[in-house]
Design a protein around this nucleic acid. Structure first.
Lengths: 343, 343
DNA sequence: TGCATAACGGAAAACGATTTCCACAAAAGT
DNA sequence: ACTTTTGTGGAAATCGTTTTCCGTTATGCA
């Protein structure tokens, strides 16, 4: 009713005009090499002249696939995801897929409802940052026979057999800790990510392991449960700096946390890194513009996106990927927010 | 071929199992009130038990609409867009639409190709930040008869009759300038947004008007063409601070520019706001965590998203909106990056 | 000249829901 | 008891492609 002003040509109209049959038009559009050059040019010309654009819904219905993929994120405002999403878009486009982006706000119900888009045939597969797999699975049966094409990005669910792309968060926690230990820090505070999130737990694990290995004990009062937001960085610093025995360094499990922490430390009058060092994780673009520029353990965000998209589309198209799990290398970016521990 | 492991029930299967006809199943699912409670419960139970989920592609094909909308952005990594996109998603979801997000990288060809998704019936409408309308229009005919549902967000094309949601950028330029003038600044540098973008041109216009009105002349050497990126903020400051006659304030046409500018000023050893004031535009979430917290002219980002989504969906559904153009109020957030001009 | 191959036409099934048309029954109203 | 509603069944058209199944003609090659 609404917008009939756009008369939609059907393939039959083109066929009639060009004096060929529909099959030929379809072949010309989808398998150009199966049509003689002469007919191809003829059909193409008519298509151009009349401005025909095939209805992809019809094609999708017939072919049983939509050539769309979905990305589920807990929070698209987190700049961590931007480069990942952008890369996924680029690769998908190159391979003929469109991307549907979803902000699930970490809500299981929303995750499941979005996941239904696979069942409704609106998308052919899903890239998800959630460690909850939004499909019912029977653990006694092989997973890949029950799940639609799905790739776990950055955050991993604990099921084996689910394709995953991300980093080694235990190692990240260790590397960050060792960087601070190397500067002589012994009282290191931690502002974690969202507590139920695996990446946060693993970074904590790596952190503790590094301390243990260096024979440094950890004061549990120096641990603040954050949630990967700037706000939790602010709150964490405020809480911890009230302690009698203050830390000389903060290990923030995300760059956004670190940005908030830097802000709060500034407010309280501390100098970074002279009084207190701060290290983050993620390597978001803005981290280099912090005051001071943030030392951080950078993730290969573009690469994560690249692997996710490639993996998912391979799965969709039935190409068996050689590897289902990709753990990509991280990199410690030493900038100005960390320095020697004060005496 | 790829994933037949998911046997897809069709509506006929449900009808048979429930002992009713397909029309009844369809009615139950789409117009529950046109079916007796008894049959409704029966059908619903079968639907639940068998886990039936209707194929939306088929429905879309038949109904001639996909219940998808597209958002075209030049750069999804710009945190300016995040709250807008998130709000659009929320409203769309509530009204039964899915959102397809596109990063066009300001490329006209990409914009056009994405816009074709309307013609291929993959989306019912578009929200675009580009001032290029990616459809051919005949200016002698009424626009609304030629264009599919489309809404211009934040950046406006120069055609009348296109639905638009945004702010008054001339006023924003004026307000920012007057704030600095009020602090006694007379040499104010400007780092603009992308030069061909209307919002940047208008902010400049407002800025110049305010100076003129205050009887302050503008030194053209204090104008640096940026592109809304952090990098251009850095570059702008470096270029302008090499001048013999330096400014006492920077008006950055975007918060990202301002973040880069703050960074570069810090590198050069200037104190903000004691030596130099900096004001931004946009009011992105991170602006409050800058060092010092950024004075900025904030846009009502959530509201922009809200109006865009509502407007577009109303257009799609044939409801004639009362207003096609919404200019929403901005707000000067005075924080710590601006202060009195040094003597 | 003969024959394999390629190119294309014609017609129709298929994808899976929506929607219409008509008939017919049961429930509700007068 | 008679007329309206209301609810439902049965069957089929429809959306616009893709794809198959032949059959036919043109082309190329030996």
């Amino acid at each position: 009713m609404a917008h009939n002003q756009f008369k939609h040509l059907a393939m039959g109209d083109i066929a009639k005009k060009a004096g060929v049959c529909m099959a030929t038009v379809s072949r010309t559009l989808n398998n150009p090499d199966r049509v003689s050059e002469k007919t191809r040019n003829l059909v193409m010309k008519v298509v151009e002249d009349m401005g025909y654009i095939p209805n992809r819904l019809a094609a999708s219905l017939r072919q049983g696939r939509s050539r769309n993929i979905a990305i589920m994120l807990p929070d698209i405002t987190n700049p961590y995801f931007s480069p990942i999403v952008r890369t996924i878009e680029q690769i998908s486009l190159a391979r003929g897929y469109s991307v549907i982006l979803k902000d699930t706000q970490d809500d299981p119900a929303l995750e499941r409802s979005f996941a239904e888009m696979v069942k409704t045939r609106q998308v052919d597969g899903i890239i998800t940052n959630s460690q909850r797999i939004p499909f019912d699975v029977d653990l006694t049966l092989p997973l890949h026979e029950q799940l639609p094409p799905i790739v776990n990005a950055s955050e991993f669910c604990d099921l084996d057999g689910i394709p995953k792309v991300g980093v080694d968060n235990v190692a990240i926690g260790k590397d960050a800790a060792e960087h601070l230990l190397g500067f002589g820090h012994r009282r290191i505070a931690v502002i974690t990510g969202t507590s139920h999130i695996l990446s946060s737990q693993q970074r904590e694990k790596g952190f503790r392991a590094a301390l243990l290995q260096a024979n440094v004990s950890f004061d549990e009062k120096l641990l603040y449960q954050g949630d990967y937001s700037c706000e939790s960085g602010v709150a964490g610093v405020r809480a911890i700096m009230q302690l009698k025995e203050r830390p000389t360094a903060f290990f923030c499990f995300g760059d956004q946390i670190a940005i908030g922490a830097l802000h709060a430390l500034r407010e309280l009058g501390y100098k970074v890194p002279e009084d207190i060092s701060v290290i983050g994780v993620d390597g978001i673009a803005l981290s280099q513009y912090c005051a001071p520029p943030l030392t951080t353990v950078a993730q290969p965000l573009t690469q994560i996106g690249e692997y996710c998209a490639t993996l998912l589309i391979d799965l969709i198209e039935g190409k068996q990927p050689e590897k289902l799990v990709h753990i990509l290398p991280h990199q410690l970016l030493i900038r100005a927010s960390t320095g020697p521990a004060p005496k």
